[in-house]
């Protein structure tokens, strides 16, 4: 039996305020669907999707996290050993852009140094035919682009609803992930997975549960 291409595994995490459309983006990417009323994510969801870019086959292992503030403390579990992150905001919600900034900052501080980050302004379909006097758009393209330039992020505006630019985000990420980390990714996860734990210890009596950590 022949194996055409080695498969690169990319561990990817989605972060961003509640209801900006993280789950919807994933759903669009994974099954090319859109659900008007995708339920709020609790904890996180895990999905996979394969994509062939040129002669490379890439398997995305996607952690779709919950956006609500209260659950934000869980996010490190998911991003600590991620190779890529999608930081998503809603182009009609300025607050979600503020939140995106915070996520980028946190990732820079906490996540692995060579993590590939894409900044994604979602719900582009809502602002497509904005006219002069009645603007639905609340976050300009320039604002997004500036942040991306400052922080060295990939930048896209997308619509999970129409599918606009969605695949492009993932392709761009795939292209940025070096092939070297590719095939050996299994061992890579092995080594890092010990750090991926959230510290639930609080008072410290949970230590026995976080073996290998701290």
């Amino acid at each position: 039996m022949s194996f055409p291409n080695p498969v690169t595994s990319v561990k990817l995490v989605l972060l961003g305020e509640a209801a900006v459309g993280k789950s919807s983006l994933v759903l669009r990417f994974v099954s090319n669907e859109f659900q008007e009323n995708k339920e709020p994510t609790i904890g996180a969801a895990f999905l996979t999707q394969k994509l062939t870019i040129g002669d490379r086959a890439i398997k995305y292992e996607i952690w779709d996290t919950a956006g609500q503030e209260r659950f934000a403390s869980l996010a490190p579990m998911y991003y600590r050993n991620a190779q890529a992150a999608l930081v998503v905001y809603d182009v009609t919600k300025p607050a979600s852009f503020v939140k995106a900034r915070q996520w980028v900052k946190e990732l820079r501080e906490q996540a692995s140094k060579d993590i590939t980050i894409a900044l994604v302004g979602n719900k582009y379909d809502l602002v497509e035919d904005d006219n002069e006097e009645d603007l639905v758009r609340k976050v300009n393209v320039e604002e997004g682009q500036n942040l991306a330039d400052e922080e060295g992020l990939l930048f896209f505006e997308t619509s999970a609803k129409t599918g606009y630019n969605v695949k492009d985000v993932f392709v761009a990420i795939g292209n940025k992930i070096p092939e070297a980390t590719a095939s050996g990714s299994d061992t890579a996860t092995n080594q890092t997975s010990g750090e991926g734990r959230i510290d639930l210890s609080g008072g410290g009596n949970f230590n026995n549960a976080t073996s290998g950590c701290c």
Binding site: L74, G196, I198, L200, T210, S211
Partner: peptide, 11 residues
Amino acid sequence: CQSVDLFFFFR
């Protein structure tokens, strides 16, 4: 498996 924090029970 480093899973004893039972985090998967969160939801």
